[in-house]
């Protein structure tokens, strides 16, 4: 999606790009700016995980750490976007950035052998991605690329500590109420989602649903995905996995149906959230006796992992 936005930035003649970000967009805009030779100004909340900050600084971007939450960063960027002649990926380039994420839907269909899944669970922050995945699937259907049409149900996933979209859907509300985020899932901690209404509309018209999970369930989700699929996801992925588990327990998926869970970030970026919660290493001396002793302890006899 950033490749799409920066391509348009070049076409429009901008030499400077910018974005407001909870971290992942920051990484991407910084990287693409380096490759494309743009000057970059990246605005982030001051309390982001170190992995996301380093993964932005690395590319030589100017990183502005704003003393506020994402919604405050977003407001500042809207004010700044009006003042400076920069290409803000998520403000004045927003339509291209948004449409760029349709490729997530294209890739789902392609990887399923040109079929649409029965269910897709998507983490919601600003609320854009869930509607773009749905749009991507439906565009491919209109082009005749999908066997069997699109009857995919879309599900929104949020953390309980920041759940304006899922709360509105679960209470059948017409209007979402903004929240002050408080969750370890910082990449989706947006209390005033600009595309909240689009997300709600997508869920409703597709026949899907929404749910939200606790901080403990987020960690459980990260662990479950790692230990069953070999994928290390960041906190947002933990949210999505655990919401999928809740939806399954509600009987929303039939055993023979295809369920796609959108894992949108790498776990190495949010290590702070899981430090001390994934088990411990086992210290031994570099000799066989020490190894033998270790292997005979109750913990290792029980199998790897806690």
């Amino acid at each position: 999606m950033v490749a799409c936005a920066l391509t348009k930035a070049r076409e429009f003649g901008y030499d400077t790009v910018a974005c407001a970000s909870t971290g992942n967009l920051a990484n991407s805009v910084a990287a693409h700016s380096a490759e494309g030779g743009f000057r970059a100004y990246i605005f982030i909340p001051h309390d982001l995980e170190q992995g996301k900050v380093l993964g932005t600084l690395l590319y030589g971007a100017n990183v502005l750490s704003v003393n506020g939450n994402y919604d405050e960063v977003n407001r500042l960027c809207a004010e700044a976007g009006d003042k400076y002649g920069w290409a803000f990926v998520n403000i004045n380039l927003r339509p291209f950035y948004g449409d760029g994420s349709k490729s997530f839907g294209y890739e789902i269909a392609e990887q399923l052998g040109w079929k649409a899944p029965d269910h897709v669970i998507v983490p919601c922050a600003g609320g854009s991605l869930i509607s773009k995945i749905y749009k991507g699937l439906n565009e491919f259907d209109r082009l005749g690329l999908i066997d069997g049409g699109v009857s995919t149900k879309m599900y929104a996933a949020q953390a309980k500590g920041c759940s304006p979209i899922t709360t509105a859907i679960k209470t059948n509300a017409e209007v979402f109420r903004p929240q002050k985020p408080n969750t370890i899932a910082k990449s989706i901690a947006i209390g005033n989602p600009a595309d909240g209404y689009m997300a709600m509309d997508t869920v409703r018209k597709s026949g899907g649903w929404a749910d939200d999970v606790t901080e403990e369930e987020i960690i459980d989700g990260i662990r479950l995905l790692g230990r069953t699929e070999g994928i290390f996801t960041e906190t947002a992925g933990g949210v999505t996995v655990s919401v999928a588990k809740k939806l399954a327990a509600q009987g929303r998926f039939k055993p023979d149906e295809i369920v796609v869970i959108a894992i949108t970030g790498n776990g190495l970026k949010t290590q702070e959230a899981v430090v001390g919660k994934l088990g411990e290493t086992f210290g031994i001396q570099p000799n066989l006796a020490s190894l033998e002793a270790a292997l005979n302890t109750e913990k290792l006899l029980a199998g790897v992992g806690v």
Partner: peptide, 10 residues
Amino acid sequence: VSIIPAIAGG
């Protein structure tokens, strides 16, 4: 007072 159209990132 700031009047701001909705925008979002990620």
